[in-house]
């Protein structure tokens, strides 16, 4: 066999292999054993220990181009908050489509909960959608200065009532006088909007992030500095969240059984008490394994081909 040919495989062959291989991932089991990342454990523990009487602020800056990662993040976050009956306010910055995409996720989870006979979240009562703030820097600075003035002109529909009311007249934000009155701010992003949010708000409110795999490395300095209390990065982060939603941390369903997820710094953090846990990320996680394996094999193959070709060339010279 001519091994040196390995370094010159036609790219169309690679494309076909990728297409077939990633499609095979759909048939892999969706409950792959896992050891979540420390930052994801921090985020899950934080979410499960939030007080129920304070709202959470969600900045959702993603669209379906990154849904493999960020849609799983928002779904996991909503499922946790809804299962714990924590109210939230959600808005988008920069991308005009991001708001509608986030609303679609909330609607789908509500429908899923309704089918399961669980309590659904009502607009203006359990959550508020603030709309899109096209200028992320201005919005962040404004929230820092005075949240009542920053969001004071925004109105919302209240489920069961005609017309729209100012957002601070609703049960969600009635007691919020500054951004510090939120128990947590989570930025779900596929871009650098997390930098803008951290720069302006991380000393005012507890912050966490859920981002694409591409953005995740840039979160490390913020996480190490304590500006982010936890984060879930990429599809792995989304699966980490779903895995902990199903198994908790240091949690044994029956006495004597080994916990599936352990972390020394926490006590027992239970799984989510109701609703789905494994969902979107679990469906895609097998495919991620296959795609990365393929990538590693392709790199190895190219290098083997190169070494063989080099060896042959040396032999020829001798």
């Amino acid at each position: 066999m001519n091994w040196s040919k390995l370094q010159n495989v036609d790219r169309r062959v690679l494309y076909v292999i990728l297409l077939v291989a990633t499609s095979l991932g759909l048939f892999l089991p969706s409950r792959i054993p896992n050891d979540p990342e420390p930052a994801a454990k921090d985020l899950y523990a934080l979410l499960m220990q939030l007080p129920e009487d304070k709202p959470v602020i969600i900045q959702s800056d993603w669209t379906n181009s990154t849904r493999g990662e960020t849609m799983g993040h928002l779904e996991a976050l909503c499922r946790i908050l809804m299962s714990r009956r924590i109210k939230f306010v959600i808005y988008a910055t920069a991308d005009a489509q991001a708001g509608q995409v986030a609303l679609n996720v909330i609607r789908q989870i509500n429908e899923e909960r309704k089918k399961a006979g669980l309590v659904t979240y009502r607009e203006g009562v359990d959550y508020i959608y603030l709309g899109v703030f096209p200028n992320a820097e201005g919005a962040g600075q404004n929230m820092r200065n005075d949240i009542r003035k920053a969001w004071g002109t925004r109105q919302t529909k209240v489920d069961g009532q005609a017309g729209r009311v100012p957002v601070f007249d609703t049960a969600v934000l009635r007691n919020m006088r500054s951004v510090s009155d939120a128990s947590l701010m989570v930025v779900i992003t596929a871009s650098a909007t997390i930098d803008v949010a951290v720069q302006r708000l991380s000393d005012k409110v507890t912050m966490a992030c859920m981002s694409t795999g591409v953005v995740a490395p840039s979160l490390l300095p913020f996480y190490q500095a304590g500006q982010l209390k936890g984060f879930a990065g990429g599809l792995r982060g989304a699966y980490d969240m779903e895995y902990m939603m199903a198994h908790g941390i240091n949690y044994s369903p029956t006495p004597g059984q080994e916990p599936k997820v352990t972390a020394e710094k926490f006590g027992e953090i239970p799984p989510v008490p109701e609703g789905k846990s494994f969902e979107r990320a679990a469906r895609y996680f097998g495919t991620l394994h296959i795609a990365l394996t393929l990538l590693i094999l392709a790199v190895v193959m190219g290098n083997v081909g190169m070494f063989v070709a080099k060896k042959k060339a040396k032999g020829g010279n001798n």
Binding site: I32, P33, N34, D35, G213, G234, R236, Y239, D240, Y243, F285, L288, H289, L292, T293, L295, I296
Partner: peptide, 12 residues
């Protein structure tokens, strides 16, 4: 880093 992203591999 790629191996660490594969939760199943990292776990095993």
């Amino acid at each position: 880093l790629m191996l660490s992203l594969m939760g199943g591999v990292a776990y095993a």
